[in-house]
């Protein structure tokens, strides 16, 4: 009995994301997510897949607390996101790295400043910034391009900068929303390898993607959404065809 209890408590401690009976409906009344149950443990690598309109983006927005749920329960890294106060949201997001399909870099600042920006937000000292930024830029292979402006970089390089910015504060969870959506196959694979490497170092990685080849090749946990419902959740899954 005691062993069972201990096992249960260890499982709960290990759990980093918990969505229980989550529903999200937009003001138009259209349901985006219906009765979603999802648990992700610390250190996992999870793909969220599905066609357009399946609810992937809504799910990411709920995890980022950009949107609030309509009903159910959502807990990310110990924060109950249905009850979190507005002033606590910045602190919550500091443990959450995020990468977007369109990179979202500050166009008027160079690579170094884009990455340092994330450190300044958490009020790191200049000394720490000077140590951490070059170190993370070398991890993503951009140490030599720290002075370049985003427009001088290729899509793959811009996504690496975005990745460096997401990682420099050593987040517990990394959310990547279609990180390879604007990249060619070669750059897509390089980004995915980086994400895998980051995951091996202990960060929980959640990737929303359309990229069938990558999902099938990487053999990671795959959660498939269709019309707002989880239709499949496989440990070493692949991309499920609509047909």
């Amino acid at each position: 009995m005691a062993a069972k209890k201990r096992k249960k408590s260890t499982a709960a401690e290990n759990e980093i994301i918990n969505l229980t009976n989550v529903c999200k409906a937009y003001s138009t009344g259209a349901p985006a997510l219906k009765d979603v149950n999802l648990r992700i443990n610390r250190g996992e690598f999870v793909f969220i897949v599905g066609d357009s309109g399946s609810g992937k983006s809504t799910l990411i927005k709920l995890l980022l607390r950009e949107l609030t749920i309509t009903s159910g329960y959502i807990n990310v890294m110990g924060y109950d996101l249905s009850k979190i106060k507005h002033r606590k949201i910045p602190k919550f997001r500091r443990n959450l790295g995020v990468v977007f399909q369109d990179f979202r870099l500050l166009k008027d600042r160079n690579v170094y400043e884009n990455v340092a920006f994330a450190q300044r937000i958490i009020q790191k000292s200049n000394k720490e910034i000077k140590r951490n930024v070059p170190s993370i830029l070398s991890v993503v292979g951009l140490a030599g391009k720290y002075k370049a402006k985003p427009r001088q970089l290729s899509g793959g390089e811009q996504q690496r900068v975005a990745l460096a910015r997401a990682l420099v504060n050593q987040p517990t969870v990394l959310l990547a929303d279609e990180p390879t959506g604007n990249l060619d196959p070669k750059n897509s694979w390089e980004i995915m390898k980086l994400l895998e490497q980051i995951n091996e170092n202990g960060t929980t990685v959640i990737v929303v993607t359309h990229n069938r080849e990558i999902v099938n090749a990487m053999q990671k946990r795959v959660v498939t959404l269709k019309k707002g419902v989880i239709i499949s959740d496989e440990e070493k899954g692949g991309y499920i065809d609509e047909d």
Partner: peptide
């Protein structure tokens, strides 16, 4: 708009 959104996603406080 975009700049403020990026700041908020990274975890900047309203004051910052």
């Amino acid at each position: 708009k975009e700049e403020i959104n990026i700041m908020k996603y990274i975890g900047a406080t309203d004051f910052f």
